[in-house]
Write a protein that binds this DNA or RNA. Sequence first.
DNA 1: GCCTAAGTTCAATTTTTAATGAAAATTCTG
DNA 2: CAGAATTTTCATTAAAAATTGAACTTAGGC
Lengths: 174, 174
Amino acid sequence: MKTPSEKSNGKPVNRKLYAPLAAHEVELAQFFVRMANILGIQRSVAEIYSLLYASPKPMEFDQIQGRLEMSKGSVSQGLKFLRDHGMILAIKEKGTKRERWEPTPSLAGSLVNILRSQVLPSLEKSKPTLQNVLDFATARAAAPEVIERIARLQRWNSRAVELSALLLPPPADE
Amino acid sequence: MKTPSEKSNGKPVNRKLYAPLAAHEVELAQFFVRMANILGIQRSVAEIYSLLYASPKPMEFDQIQGRLEMSKGSVSQGLKFLRDHGMILAIKEKGTKRERWEPTPSLAGSLVNILRSQVLPSLEKSKPTLQNVLDFATARAAAPEVIERIARLQRWNSRAVELSALLLPPPADE
DNA sequence: GCCTAAGTTCAATTTTTAATGAAAATTCTG
DNA sequence: CAGAATTTTCATTAAAAATTGAACTTAGGC
């Protein structure tokens, strides 16, 4: 007969196998969640990153899932996001199957990656939109002050795109 | 007998009284909604601002509600947000009861106000949190590299707060 | 000072976004 | 290359956020 700590396949359930978060881990997560909110990044991603950030050694999938009591799906998606944005690195030891994860050394670099992917696309997408608006408004003979306002917006947006591209240059390789 | 365009109090319903949005107004709203997303501001607020921005003259409550086909509650809350962040100004003409609204001349100033209220508080709230984390971690004799990471985070945060306070100074009066 | 028009508030509802977990896909390992 | 272990995918569910509208409040006109 199976104990409650076993699934039908005999594999032990994660619950209770991993230590609950320590006080400093909880507070650090609060910090990262706040920062993530500003950037429009979801809580689960911030929690994963925070855990890795406070860990003295790289962590593997099941540890992350167990200590955060989070679903497999969320861990998988969270790690994917962090990987895609260059925020974590895989440490692959020979002889082991599972990968282990740690934060990339440069948090600054990670931030730049995030900003580039979260903010720049919106700015760039706006260029043609604003040109359209200006064309429309001109064609309909809108009030001159309105046309001037829109033109100002367009100049702003262009400068913002240029500035961002300068501050957030794409990585040389990849 | 009442027509369908009248309510029981005899006051005409707004529907059909106001022109639907023109193409350039729709596209401009898309632009402002995108920018609002970056800043974590809701769609309805962006739409109201956009409408005022594209209007050659100040607009009153009912016009805004009618042209955007938006509820009274949303218009009221949206105008409150825009007012509170110095993004719109009330034009009060003598002899009229209703106020009319227009965007403040300086969009740059408005942006600064938004950033100050949306971003700064998170940065500032983090200062004590990070100090706590550091204290906790030290007390538990966490790994030195973890302590170093957290200390670095704390220095970053402090500098971010200082820099923000510098770039986004509070208005002199009010 | 009453009455009505104008605007605000907030509980209920709708919409949007994030998390879950079972099934599918992939990847080592023997 | 079979088979198990690990991870990913994605339809479903749950949670969070935004919107609505009716009741309430406030401000002006008479």
